[in-house]
Design a protein around this nucleic acid. Structure first.
Length: 424
RNA sequence: GGAGGGAUGGCCGAGUGGCUUAAGGCGGCGGUCUUGAAAACCGUUGUGGGUGGCAACACCCACCGGGGGUUCGAAUCCCUCUCCCUCCGCCA
């Protein structure tokens, strides 16, 4: 949620942001007119309520029966007018809230206007591997090694599901453990959260109402399966007022993620690139506005360290406004090179969210010495999405005989397996 | 699943229709005392919104788990939902 005050004071700035994202700037004018109508109604209804409060107090204190009866009758009429104005106000409030809930965050100046086509490569790291044979794609390599079984996933659940087996399952678990331990060393506190959350929690993180159709829902209980650990991590301090001394808070969490992928139906259908269920290790920070740029840059470095540690060549992308998360001021993606399918795969997205989520989830802090409360700033980033990391490792580290070298850092979790060979 | 009891400010906790502008305590902040600190004492201390003001601030409205209702007036009465606790049952 953006600050209504920003819309009042600098509507043109907010509109410019909408235009950069290819969205309708007229929505800002709509918000302004609803806001001013709301304030007119508030003045009227609050004046009447003040009158009623005063009279009610007098009624309570009065001993004169006739005077009491007269006042009660008069207040009955005032009460009716209050009811009428209140319901009109509630209608305006509901419209304004609904609109505000859908407005995206204002992007930074350096974010290019336009959608995905406007994305800019800002950095490349590592060398693409060279082969003296034709490298295979993981959808061939995985089944040949016996570590990815697509048929079983389809039989169990349906398309875009798969089963990992033996060294494949172990490799994924090793990456998760290594990443969590790395993030802990980087100063994050590990969290294990529910993977089912209420709608309020999703609203706080900005997933609802916009992504409703992309979420799996238990209709009986009004619970949703999380699309990312960012959701429960945002919710950890929902409704709280933190002390400045407690900031920054840096969390990391492993979780499975569930997405219907309705919006990208038909894309990336081969292999394990875009399943309905995937695992991810997430990083999340709550900090003061003053610290948020530095904490964001540090998280970028922390995410890059995971790709570097695994020896994955990657590039960093500054996302175009239309492709930037609606909650974010700015987002960078980390894309790992996958030699077999010959693609850059998005393995991480790091976003500086400002107070957008904090407003929605009511997460504030008390500034040291200062008065009142301020909204915290939040930052989120994936410490790499597992299936795509698996793809990059398998495809980049494959050898002529079809075996795959395991990155050295994973050794402690691989039980001595340094090369994955075809399973019997 | 069954029965009962709860949810009050940063925290604990009183409060069953108008003397509550939510008692009291803890914590926080300021002060007195002290070489300094502790203790003691005094004062102060919620959130959101609106109006006016350059501003410090002033005034008003709302908020006692969420939503709805009764009433001139609700923390208090009624309905409903959520969550927590105790006991029983069932299951891992």
């Amino acid at each position: 949620m953006i600050d209504i005050e920003l819309i009042r004071q600098q509507p043109e700035l907010v509109k410019a942001g909408m235009i950069k994202r290819n969205m309708q700037p007229a929505l800002i004018d709509k918000a302004r007119s609803l806001d001013s109508r709301r304030r007119e109604l508030l003045v009227d209804v609050e004046t009447l309520k003040a009158e009623r409060n005063k009279a009610s107090k007098e009624i309570g204190a009065s001993k004169d029966k006739t005077a009491r009866e007269e006042k009660i009758a008069a207040m009955r009429a005032v009460g009716d007018r209050i009811d009428a104005l209140d319901s009109e106000l509630a209608a305006v409030d509901a419209q304004l809230d609904e609109l505000m809930a859908t407005l995206p965050n204002v992007v930074e100046d350096r974010v290019p206007a336009g959608g995905e086509e406007a994305n800019v490569v800002v950095k490349e790291w590592g060398d693409k591997p060279k082969f003296d044979f034709v490298p295979k794609a993981h959808w061939d390599l995985g089944p040949q090694l016996g570590i990815i079984n697509f048929d079983q996933g389809v039989a169990l659940t349906g398309s875009r599901f798969y089963v990992l087996s033996g060294a494949g399952a172990r490799l994924q678990r090793a990456i998760i453990s290594w990443m969590l331990d790395l993030h802990i060393r980087q100063g994050y506190t590990e969290k294990y959260t529910p993977f089912l959350v209420r709608s309020e929690t999703l609203f706080g993180a900005g997933q609802l109402p916009r992504f409703a159709e992309n979420l799996y829902k238990d209709h009986e209980e009004d619970l949703y399966m999380i699309p990312t650990a960012e959701v429960p991590l945002t919710g950890l301090h929902m409704g709280e007022i933190l002390d400045e001394a407690d900031l920054p808070r840096r969390y990391t969490a492993y979780s499975p993620c569930f997405r219907r992928e309705k919006m990208s139906a038909g894309r990336d259908v081969r292999g394990i690139k875009r399943g309905h269920q995937f695992d991810k290790v997430e990083m999340y920070k709550f900090c003061t506005p003053e610290d948020s740029v530095a904490e964001f840059e540090q998280m970028m470095a922390d995410a890059e360290a995971t790709a570097q540690g695994l020896g994955l060549p990657y590039r960093v992308i500054l996302k175009g406004a239309g492709d930037t998360s609606e909650a974010a001021h700015i987002s960078f993606d980390i894309e790992a090179w996958a030699a077999g399918c010959g693609e850059w795969l998005e393995v991480s997205s790091i976003s500086r969210v400002g107070d957008y989520q904090a407003r929605r989830a009511a997460i504030r802090y008390r500034p040291k010495g200062g008065k009142g409360t301020r909204f915290v700033h939040t930052i989120n980033g994936s410490g790499l999405a597992l299936p795509r990391v698996m793809i990059a490792i398998l495809e980049n580290n494959q050898q002529a005989d079809g075996s795959v070298r395991v990155p050295k850092v994973l050794a402690p979790w691989m039980g001595g397996v340094d090369v994955i060979r075809a399973e019997k």
